[in-house]
């Protein structure tokens, strides 16, 4: 028992710093959310924002902008950033590869090909109708990658290789279609940059079940991955059903990223870098890493979208592009500040 007295204060102190950090991150997130409602091409006063929630008046332009544009955008940024960064944390841990990105499972490649085919063959150009095509393409290609990667029995390396191969194939197929069709390219290039323009409440509501399901799978997976990160043999020895755990994590990633890509296009980079930021606060515990990733990812997307909407950038910089512009230097700064520790 003496040992408990000597070790527990230390580990408790560490746990409580983590909680304080999480609270700080959450508060910053709320602050950013408020700012995101207030600023844009033109600022809207706090009073008007408040009124648009409690006494909505469809004849007032400010209310329309808040409820019809900025609020859906904000929610989409929360969902997209949280989902991408959370699934990034999952895939990096699942494949034990710090450079893994959720797009590596072929979701983005499949979704892109689906959208291109849809434009090319059916001549559809309305972004709202891309949602289910992108979702279908993403789902299908992930299923393909998962089984080519050996299903529950393959190695993480095999999974990554299958994903990389199929992604490259889908990308090449898509590009060759775009080469022969200028019209498809015009429609596609807006979708592929990844942004939160024109997302409306009904779309969000339709995709919400996927986000919720993905979050539930992710929560269970974070517990499993804590054991999986010690290697497959150790995980099995600790009583885990490794194949099932791997399948569950892939389901979480598919739900989260599939819903995101169909909502906002393929947003790269957030899923790759935010988990590295999160790990600085969470340590090696996957449950904390997932929480921090989700909140930091949401924060980054909201900030990126907010800055991208400012008049300086013509009010129309895609959030996906801006997220990478902000996140890249931020990560470099974090690495340089810590000096000794690697990624």
């Amino acid at each position: 028992m003496t040992i408990l007295e000597t070790t527990s204060p230390r580990s408790e102190r560490r746990a409580s710093t983590r909680q304080i950090w999480l609270l700080t991150v959450l508060l910053s997130l709320l602050l950013l959310s408020a700012l995101s409602l207030r600023f844009g091409l033109r600022p809207i006063s706090w009073d008007n924002i408040w009124e648009s929630f409690v006494a909505y008046d469809a004849t007032r332009a400010d209310h329309l902008v808040i409820q019809g544009m900025r609020l859906p955008r904000l929610l989409a940024a929360w969902l997209a950033g949280g989902a991408l960064a959370g699934s990034g944390a999952l895939i990096q841990s699942l494949t034990r590869n710090p450079l893994a990105d959720p797009g590596l499972l072929g979701i983005n490649g499949g979704a892109s090909l689906g959208v291109i085919l849809c434009i090319f063959l059916l001549g559809i150009s309305d972004p709202a109708s891309f949602v289910w095509v992108a979702m279908g393409g993403g789902l299908l290609s992930t299923v393909l990658v998962f089984f080519l990667g050996g299903a529950g029995r393959g190695t993480p390396l095999r999974l990554i290789l299958a994903g990389a191969a199929l992604s490259a194939l889908f990308l090449a197929l898509g590009r060759s279609l775009l080469l022969i069709s200028q019209r498809s390219l015009d429609v596609y290039r807006f979708w592929v940059l990844g942004g939160l323009d024109g997302i409306e409440m009904p779309t969000l509501a339709a995709l919400l079940p996927f986000f919720a399901l993905g979050a539930a799978f992710a929560a269970v997976s974070s517990f499993n991955l804590n054991a999986m990160m010690l290697g497959e043999d150790t995980a099995r020895s600790l009583g885990l059903r490794v194949g099932l755990a791997r399948g569950l994590a892939v389901c979480a990633i598919v739900c989260l990223c599939g819903a995101t890509v169909s909502m906002a296009g393929p947003i790269a980079f957030v899923g790759l870098i935010v988990p590295h930021m999160a790990r600085r606060f969470s340590g090696a515990d996957m449950r904390w890493c997932l929480l921090f990733s989700a909140f930091l990812g949401a924060g980054l997307m909201i900030l990126a979208d907010l800055i991208g909407r400012l008049p300086v950038f013509g009010g129309n910089m895609q959030a996906g592009v801006m997220a990478a512009l902000l996140g890249g230097p931020a990560l470099v700064w974090l690495i340089r500040r810590d000096g000794s520790t690697a990624l």
Partner: peptide, 22 residues
């Protein structure tokens, strides 16, 4: 305990031993 097991970077002894309770 498998032969030469590996752990991710940053994992503390306490974290590791705690995983034994899985």
């Amino acid at each position: 305990l498998p032969q030469s097991p590996s752990a991710p970077e940053g994992l503390t002894v306490q974290d590791l031993v705690t995983r034994g309770r899985t």
